[in-house]
Design a protein around this nucleic acid. Sequence first.
DNA 1: CGCGGAAAATGAATTGACTTAATTTTGTAG
DNA 2: CTACAAAATTAAGTCAATTCATTTTCCGCG
Lengths: 213, 213
Amino acid sequence: MAGLRERQKATRHRDILEAAGTLFRRAGYADTSIEAIAERAEVAPGTVYNYFQSKGDLLLALVALDGEEVRSIGSEMIAEPHADAFSAVQNLLESYVDHSLVHLTKELWRNAIATALTQPDSPFGLGYAALDRKLANQVGDLVACLQEQALIDREIDARVAGNVLFEICNSLFVVFVTQEAMPMEQLKRRMAEQIVLVFAGLQGKNSGSTRRK
Amino acid sequence: MAGLRERQKATRHRDILEAAGTLFRRAGYADTSIEAIAERAEVAPGTVYNYFQSKGDLLLALVALDGEEVRSIGSEMIAEPHADAFSAVQNLLESYVDHSLVHLTKELWRNAIATALTQPDSPFGLGYAALDRKLANQVGDLVACLQEQALIDREIDARVAGNVLFEICNSLFVVFVTQEAMPMEQLKRRMAEQIVLVFAGLQGKNSGSTRRK
DNA sequence: CGCGGAAAATGAATTGACTTAATTTTGTAG
DNA sequence: CTACAAAATTAAGTCAATTCATTTTCCGCG
């Protein structure tokens, strides 16, 4: 059974994460001190470190929650029937970015990506990288699925195609979060033009792949 | 004429940058303190902040030097004659990553990218973003150049294609620097397979672009 | 020469993330 | 009920980046 100890631990974990989420969103990442998070969670500053390795881990834990949400929405989208390949891919990738600002701000994304980069071997750094890979694979799964329906050339390596499509959007997303003024609309426009370009190579009009000589 | 003051200022700037570069490479970014940099440059800690806004700016200044080098090498490569489109693009993109580890380590790249992300509005943060854009445009220029030689379909938007190609490599480069163990060879292999895939859509075998319905 | 003021250098003080070692609390076995 | 091992909590540090009030240095001018 769940001992008191277990329950308290889970509660604290949640409390701290919630406090951090609220304050991060309200005051920004840099201007939120661990002390303030601890106070809001009714806990001593040091206690925060029993649950999270660092301030960055706290942020990445929030991102991870979001990531799982996006991934599960994505897997539902893959299961749905697809009219054409282009819009299937576009819809999936747009669903990722659509959800990005529901729980997080651009500033939080910037800091999350930065933390994942500077601490690549910490548990959450690894977690962030794993999430990226999962989403790229998900796009790859969609491509494979579209191949089965003959909507995309079967000669194409679905894994590579998934990576390319995901990475393009990821790069554009990074630009999006670094430019506070850039509207979501513009991000999607750029995504669309780049996906179209890649798609021109995914249709397999005749020979499809390019080999030297 | 250059007064003593001007000259001293330039000297200090160079001294500090050199000290930082040496120590960053030797001990790593995190383990190099501003105090150590100041000491090596024979300057007080506070003085460093007269020349650079932050430790991160110092790092980004080093990256910017590297970036200019890469850009000028790149522009020479574009001027050379090209046998085929694929290898021209591949060579240009490989030249970028080949030079990435000449003056900087993976750890420094991670921290540089992270700093550029977290301080996007600082002068060097803007500089980093501008550099990325310049390199992407350079790839675009190469594509345009190849179009003129009829090595790439003229229907393609060279700017978009340049972006796609550059961003793909940039994404792979980020993965490369976050994984200390990943060899350059593997980065290039991944780059090649993704460029090939995009290329399949740049050849314009017949209709080229994809329009819905 | 040397004086006034602007620009630059200084380094001690501040700040906040993170660590640690002592204290308190919990679940349990006797 | 009680004593105790394990786990959680905390308060009091450490450390390094950054700031800022003060001092020093340079330059144009009398």
